[in-house]
Simulated scan of single mutants.
Amino acid sequence: MNGVKELILSFASSRKEFSTDELWDWISQDGDIVRNTVNITLSRLVSKGEIMRVSRGVYAMAKGKSIFRAVLEDREIQVAEILRNKYPFAPFCIYNGKSLVPLQHHLSENNVTYVETDRSAMEAVFNTLKDAGYEVWLNPSEDITYKYIDLRKPVIIVKPLVTEAPTEKINDINVPTIEKLLVDIKKDEDFAYLQGSEAQRMWEIGESLYNINQSRLKRYAKRRGLSYNSAV
């Protein structure tokens, strides 16, 4: 596997981007390498952040960009445990508002725990967390968020989880990918304080610092009712 890894990295470093077929055509000249081995090694390099996926079947060298990871603190882990026990079959995406900090140009404190789930489960989740002693808000509008919610405090916002939203697991908890966050700040009412020039700047920072899966980004933007151009 190490030999295949070096071959892939060598090929990637000589090109701006490449397809899996182009990679295989080049590597297969060796004659002793199985294509499945190449595919597995390529996937591992993507997971490690050494290679980035540009679009479906197209890759590029990561060029020193980092892999974005959403923030989970003790409160989010505790909330996830409560909800997992109470609603074992419900989907959840949970993260702390501090996840936004690395993307921000003008820093604004956000200590909110965001809990996203099916619309049909939102009210039950809201009541469960409220009964557990948390300060909880149910899918607040822009006006409610602005007037009544202090984002600096450890409150919880329960909001709808869009089906097929791009998430990943940290500590066995579903959290948003960077593609999901970048689109959500353009769309969600509780993120209205970020929208406009700040959201655009966050997008630019995200592009410069982190690996962005462009096909995932376009797909989720379309699902949220945003054209790719309006999202960026």
Rank of each mutant, 00 (worst) to 15 (best):
P160L: 11
F92W: 11
W203V: 01
E73D: 14
A192Q: 04
R219I: 06
V112Q: 01
V155G: 01
I67G: 00
V232M: 14
D74V: 02
K63C: 03
E204N: 14
F191D: 01
F191G: 00
S197K: 13
L7D: 12
R201L: 14
G64L: 09
V125Q: 06
A192G: 02
Y134W: 12
Q200P: 00
E198S: 08
I77T: 03
F68D: 01
K86G: 01
I67Q: 11
A90W: 07
I8K: 07
G31Y: 07
R44F: 06
L151I: 04
P176F: 09
P176H: 07
G57K: 13
V155T: 09
S19F: 01
L226N: 11
D21H: 10
L42W: 05
Q200R: 14
M61C: 03
R15M: 01
V46H: 10
I156H: 04
Y148N: 13
L107Q: 13
V115H: 05
C93W: 00
R152D: 11
A80H: 04
D32N: 12
A221V: 04
D25L: 11
I212W: 04
N2T: 07
S43I: 02
M202E: 07
Q104W: 01
D25W: 06
S28E: 14
M122R: 05
R224P: 02
T37F: 00
P140A: 10
S28G: 04
E73A: 06
G49C: 03
T113S: 12
E123K: 13
S99G: 05
P91H: 14
E81Y: 02
S230P: 00
S208L: 10
N110C: 12
S230K: 15
R53E: 05
I40M: 03
C93K: 12
S197Q: 12
S47Q: 14
L45C: 10
N85Y: 08
V79K: 11
I40T: 11
